[in-house]
Simulated scan of single mutants.
Amino acid sequence: MSIIITIESLYFNFYKRGEKYEDNPNLSEYQQSIRAIDEQPFVSLLVPCYNESDNIEGILKTIDEALDYDYLEVILINDGSTDNTAIKIRTSLMRMHLNKEFRFVDIEENMGKENVLLQGALATKGEFLMVMDTDAILDVDAIKKWWCILKIQLLMLSLGNHWYGILQPY
């Protein structure tokens, strides 16, 4: 039975709704947001750093070259490193010619990863947050793949809400 409900919902959302409401300016805000799922969101990538002075240039280069995603800001957060990580990040960001938008948040006292991520999240401009550790190896399309998975979950959520009558009728 659930397979039939899912197929009906998919049919309605992809075919029927698109035919009737393609150019309707009276769509509710929620309905417009469902249509906007296909657009790529602006993503903030948080990178907490602790005693990474020897690796920071490689990290910056890897992130800048490896990630193929246009709507991205990278926020490096120093967690009170005892080496010269903060200085290395500042000089590397000024010296290197990077294609992506990089920003730096310096926390002078080590207060743990949770605090670092909170401070980084407060500094973001993105619609979605991702976290990457400095020793991570990312796929070139990691953010695009993540967005595809999230899109499917958002679509399923919208289908479920529509099926149970939570949304306004079309």
Score class of each variant (00 low, 15 high):
156 M>H: 12
165 G>M: 04
135 D>L: 05
1 M>K: 14
54 D>C: 06
106 D>W: 08
114 E>V: 15
121 A>D: 05
88 K>S: 12
153 Q>P: 00
27 L>H: 04
146 W>N: 06
165 G>L: 05
4 I>Q: 14
124 T>M: 15
129 L>W: 02
113 K>P: 01
86 A>P: 05
106 D>I: 05
36 A>M: 02
168 Q>Y: 05
112 G>K: 01
90 R>I: 08
1 M>L: 14
155 L>W: 08
67 L>K: 07
114 E>M: 15
31 Q>D: 11
24 N>T: 02
124 T>H: 10
74 V>P: 15
16 K>W: 15
59 I>G: 00
69 Y>G: 00
139 D>C: 04
55 N>S: 14
167 L>K: 06
170 Y>W: 08
25 P>W: 03
32 Q>P: 00
18 G>M: 15
39 E>L: 14
31 Q>I: 02
126 G>A: 03
143 I>P: 02
143 I>M: 04
123 A>F: 10
147 W>N: 02
69 Y>P: 00
153 Q>L: 06
37 I>V: 13
142 A>G: 00
154 L>C: 09
118 L>S: 09
147 W>H: 02
47 V>M: 13
94 M>N: 07
144 K>A: 11
26 N>K: 08
109 E>M: 07
88 K>R: 10
98 L>Q: 08
53 S>R: 09
119 Q>W: 01
14 F>E: 12
130 M>R: 14
6 T>N: 15
125 K>Q: 13
146 W>S: 05
32 Q>I: 03
44 S>Q: 12
4 I>H: 14
92 S>Y: 15
32 Q>L: 12
43 V>T: 13
161 N>V: 00
44 S>N: 10
38 D>I: 07
131 V>E: 11
110 N>D: 03
140 V>D: 09
32 Q>N: 12
103 R>C: 13
142 A>K: 06
60 L>S: 03
98 L>M: 06
78 N>K: 10
62 T>H: 11
91 T>M: 10
79 D>I: 06
20 K>F: 12
154 L>S: 07
137 I>F: 15
3 I>H: 09
132 M>F: 06
30 Y>N: 04
24 N>L: 01
158 S>C: 08
141 D>G: 01
155 L>V: 04
140 V>M: 08
40 Q>F: 13
150 L>R: 15
153 Q>M: 09
60 L>N: 02
76 L>A: 07
32 Q>V: 01
60 L>A: 04
37 I>N: 05
139 D>G: 03
150 L>D: 12
132 M>R: 12
113 K>E: 06
90 R>E: 13
2 S>L: 13
131 V>K: 14
103 R>P: 06
128 F>K: 14
8 E>M: 15
99 N>R: 04
168 Q>C: 04
1 M>H: 14
99 N>Y: 01
131 V>H: 12
119 Q>V: 04
65 E>I: 01
82 T>I: 05
168 Q>D: 11
115 N>Y: 09
11 Y>W: 13
112 G>I: 03
54 D>P: 01
27 L>A: 03
5 I>L: 10
85 T>P: 06
88 K>V: 02
141 D>C: 03
76 L>W: 09
161 N>K: 14
104 F>C: 04
12 F>H: 11
93 L>T: 02
170 Y>V: 03
108 E>G: 07
138 L>T: 11
105 V>C: 06
45 L>N: 07
159 L>R: 10
170 Y>L: 04
138 L>P: 06
100 K>P: 11
144 K>I: 05
136 A>L: 02
7 I>V: 12
